[in-house]
Design a protein around this nucleic acid. Structure first.
Lengths: 157, 157, 157, 157
DNA sequence: TTTT
DNA sequence: TTTT
């Protein structure tokens, strides 16, 4: 054991979240998140390099994303790296890497400042359980609730 | 809002954990954790500077600490900074800064290698609730259980 | 060895940065940073608890703070915990805990949105050295430069 | 801007590092790192899921990896996510996600305890520059040196 | 007060 | 392909 798998990102949504409501009422949201870094190349020219991350949110976090997150907005994401294997059409083994969020904090977007900010935290509970309540911040907007995070292994997308 | 308060430490216990079992069966463990960094001073001499952190663990994490953590051992701690105010004997306002852990992973100690390693994660649940089960790692040693983390505000120490 | 001492904060400045320019041209900036979390108490009432962190920035980061950071603004800070000992007037041993930043990213403030954002990273170089340039992001505002971080041990404050 | 891309991993090497020494003396090391989490499935059975991460280290870190890291050992890695595009043999666009380390700390392996531990930190310097020295920990083993991290964009693997 |  |  002795394992840690932790990712911390601050970036901007490349698209509106794409949300699916699975059988059983479980919500899943996905969006691409851009982080960029600037650096000087060998000629001293400032360059920018953008990294795109596939963000996945489950349950309560997905619902918050559906309601409040839009393309261009800035968010803080804490989560873990997960690489899935799948077969492409030619039958080759492919890999897809995603960031499964367990915390999300809105940081506002242009023209909105900090006013849209809020903290949302994924919470764990016992098997099958909805743990209504908890110490999760909701920034005066209601919305955030606590769900477990044990998503099904094989999802239809 | 839009707040994040996160600490990540790997260090060694300066003492065995000091554990208290509060009324209601809630356990609290405390120990000092040393992190050290080496650097070269202006004379090119290697120097070491040690930082001491006051670690606080609640409930399930405290019980794991009581059972498995000992002076000298190496642990990974994830948590948050909390500074408490108190009055000293002369009535002056004092501050005490602690790291309240919400995840702890044993990294072994001298002569033990990785064999004592294990992951333990603090879990949140609804008010008053014990959330039996969960996705917490226990490294084949039993022990780790899931408790909520909403400790009482005023504690007798 | 085997040590990690890492802090990640997103919060708001409680005051404008207080900047000192030491002998040798080294700048040091300090400001209090608030992080807050909301939680429900036993009565189901939403409560907010604010944590104050003493942030310290050196050299390039201090100069960026002096130019761009103001009370109320939101920043991302990455750094380490450092607790200093000192004697109070009665000769008692006291402790003061600070966060020494090695990365700082502006996240904007009310009315400013993401437009004031920028990444600034503390960089290390060889002894005594100024390492002009580097791969630090500056959000099109210039300003960010790379300095070493080996501050003097005993500082006049 | 306002970007953060940070990964923190503790895991075990799946293989010995594969090291290449590029033209110009630059070293690059790669190895797979396993993180695993245990959880209880719907039947209450303990399950383990392993995640594999492709770790990339440059220059000084690569050299430390070459000398000291071996299959099975436990390491702490801090770095960033980088996804590269490439064309497979059929000409399809493919993506490969790696963790580019900027800090690495050995945590020992079975039978070795903490005795092989050490901290190694990637350092940045001015364009083209080697910054000999710095405040990097080397655990009494020599080895760690400070290099800049601006690797070439197109590498022959 | 730990560890290397 | 690691580790417990």
């Amino acid at each position: 054991m002795a394992s840690v798998n932790k990712v911390i990102l601050i970036g901007n949504l490349g698209k509106d979240p794409e949300v699916r409501h699975l059988e059983g009422g479980v919500a899943v949201a996905r969006f691409p998140l851009a982080t960029s870094e600037t650096f000087k190349d060998k000629n001293g020219q400032r360059q920018e390099k953008t990294e795109w991350h596939n963000i996945v949110l489950w349950r309560g976090l997905a619902e918050v994303a559906e309601k409040y997150l839009r393309k261009g907005q800035s968010v803080f994401i804490e989560g873990k790296i997960r690489t899935s294997q799948y077969q492409d059409k030619e039958g080759n083994q492919r890999y897809s890497t995603e960031i499964v969020a367990d915390q999300m904090t809105m940081l506002g977007s242009k023209g909105e400042g900090g006013s849209t900010s809020g903290n949302y935290q994924e919470q764990s509970a016992s098997a099958g359980g909805y743990s209504g309540g908890g110490n999760t911040a909701t920034a005066g907007k209601g919305a955030s609730s606590a769900f477990q995070n044990d998503e099904p292994d094989d999802l239809p997308f």
